[in-house]
Design a binder for these strands. Structure first.
Lengths: 345, 345
DNA sequence: CCTCCCTGTGGAACCGTTTGCGTTCCTGGA
DNA sequence: TCCAGGAACGCAAACGGTTCCACAGGGAGG
């Protein structure tokens, strides 16, 4: 069928082991033999069988990324594409392949990852982010499989992970609004079981507190990472007797929902409501008005995660590896937050 | 190290072959033996080594998707995420894994696909779309590897492929504008070496022709699938002595660029310019105003492609397989195209 | 001149499965 | 009673590589 190492060996007049050595750039092979073998490989169109190779070497040179449970919804997000792009680029650069897997339920996720890791199809896994209590993390940790978390684990702070300083980022975003003169600032959060939601909420409250501003429960709403959530949050806020003059919003898509709702109701941004968002996806620049957004380096998160994982796979023994990477953030200011509200207190 | 079929065999007091047969649900294994073996597998936490399995079975139960050349740019697009989502969902449902690969240059793409297919790491490939003359297609066809094209090949019309009827779709989009009373309609195309660009251009001109409308060269501009292209196209059109009153645009992101430019210059949509776009990404709904867009069933394209590929892998011999799948399109009308221009001819 | 070591290569075992071919035991029909 | 045939399972050879070990030959050092 397809050409094997033995075919090459025969044609080159050497033994299979010699061909193998040529393949792995083994020293102790003479220049001439090496060249002859290479010529034959070229001539026969030989490609090493990856399965056979990894069977004996016990390594597959590939990693998998596990998409979060409700991939069907969240997958829509530009966020994941950016992340995957970073992961794939770095992995390919390191000679690794990337396998994408999406589980329906959390149970299915565990089964998938168990099949892939225990079945030795991949060497390690990237988890896109973690709920508060994650069975996949539990499984991977118990079995000592190499993996990296994009996000962080509360339960196991020593897990290899790549994350932003979300507390600081939300603090910075809120501070930006405060420095513009806003005193009544609302917060549109994500799902409460996501750690990132809580971290950012913390940064938000920290900033308010530090500035001696009122932290009101009814100025904090939770939702999904979807535009509908933004829409709902907006209508909630605008129906309040006392409304915030600015909003910190967890995601650009959510912000778009807010923007759209405001537009429908005839409100103006930033005059009626200022907005600072997160993620700095391309849509935040394209919205009208363009919305200020915290760039958290999504591509970089993916890139770094892949790098960290592969490093940890390759240098398994050495335990002097860094275990927490923090990707820097940077606020990109656009029209949606350039307005100073009139004094009224 | 990890538990193998032999460990299970020993513990269950049977031979490895028996365990293997239990694994493959072979008949001719007694109920009791089968149950005993299963119990032991459970107890030991056995998972079959996929590499070993596929080494002998000569099948990997996984496919790869090759991202288009300038993945670094285009990958950004929501389009690809939708597509991949469809592919991954269907593949996982069929028990297949999906491997993502992105090549820098076309040459690198060929190398990647050659390594994956010849190295027997995957059973087949999905190509995201095709340029007019594609070396990857050439390679796959020559080596008789199973693959499916999302899009179509002009050179080899008999290739297994999943596509829209882009001529018809563009015809429908243009007709929609004509039926609103527009007589001067421009076209913002994609890269000219993409077949999809030409197909849609054809549909556009067909519609004009059929309605006895003037087809003007200077009302057709080419660009990339990026917002910048839309911006440039817009400023080109608006500087024309005689401007179109409506535009057919190849992609939603491009439309956003157009929209943004118009907004900056103080033009109103749809009053000053109507827009009908393609792809119906979530952003088209979220834009202001929401833009009419041709839904081409992107998720469905991916889903169907995966299905077709896996089918063709599994039923290799039988040649009675369908070779061209057409995914239906559907125009979603929104605010950007609800305006009838005043008569002036 | 004789070891010793080093270079370059071949032989063979092994990685974890699958599978064709046997073998054993049992049942039933002649 | 004898034997055919089927059910249940074991043996061993692949699958395509890697790698340890052995070994031949040649140069250097004693």
């Amino acid at each position: 069928m397809s050409v094997t190492i033995k075919d090459v060996a025969k044609k080159a007049g050497v033994s299979p082991s010699t061909v193998s050595r040529v393949l792995s750039n083994n020293t102790r092979i003479s220049r001439e033999t090496s060249q002859k073998v290479r010529d034959v490989m070229e001539e026969l169109g030989y490609h090493p069988n990856i399965m056979a190779k990894s069977l004996v070497s016990r390594t597959t040179e590939s990693i998998c990324v596990i998409l979060p449970k409700p991939a069907e919804e969240l997958f829509l997000n530009l966020f994941f594409m950016e992340l995957i792009r970073g992961i794939v680029t770095q992995a390919n650069r390191s000679g690794y392949d990337v396998l994408i897997s999406s589980g329906g339920s959390e149970q299915e996720e565990v089964e998938a990852v168990s099949r892939l890791l225990k079945g030795k199809r991949v060497d390690g896994a990237i988890l896109l982010y973690s709920r508060r209590d994650d069975q996949v993390v539990e499984f991977l940790k118990k079995n000592q499989f190499p993996f990296v978390l994009i996000g962080r684990s509360e339960k196991y702070p020593d897990i290899l992970s790549v994350d932003n300083d979300n507390v600081q980022a939300a603090y910075d975003a809120t501070k930006h609004l405060i420095s513009l003169g806003h005193r009544r600032i609302g917060f549109v959060s994500g799902p409460p079981n996501h750690i990132v939601s809580r971290d950012r909420l913390k940064g938000y409250t920290n900033a308010l507190e530090e500035s001696g501003l009122e932290m009101r429960r009814d100025w904090i709403v939770e939702g999904e990472f979807l535009q509908e959530s933004g829409y709902r949050a907006m209508s909630f806020f605008m129906n309040l007797p006392e409304r915030p003059t600015a909003l910190v919003v967890m995601d650009d898509f959510v912000s778009l929902g807010v923007l759209r709702g405001l537009h429908e109701l005839g409100y103006k941004v930033p005059e009626d409501l200022c907005i600072v968002s997160f993620n700095n996806l391309s849509i935040s620049e394209l919205a009208s008005p363009p919305v200020s957004s915290m760039d958290i380096g999504i591509y970089n998160l993916g890139y770094t995660a892949s790098q960290a994982l592969i490093q940890s796979i390759q240098h398994d023994g050495e335990k002097n590896l860094q275990e927490r990477y923090i990707i820097p953030h940077r606020l990109v200011i656009r029209e949606s937050s350039v307005y100073t509200p009139p004094k009224q207190n």
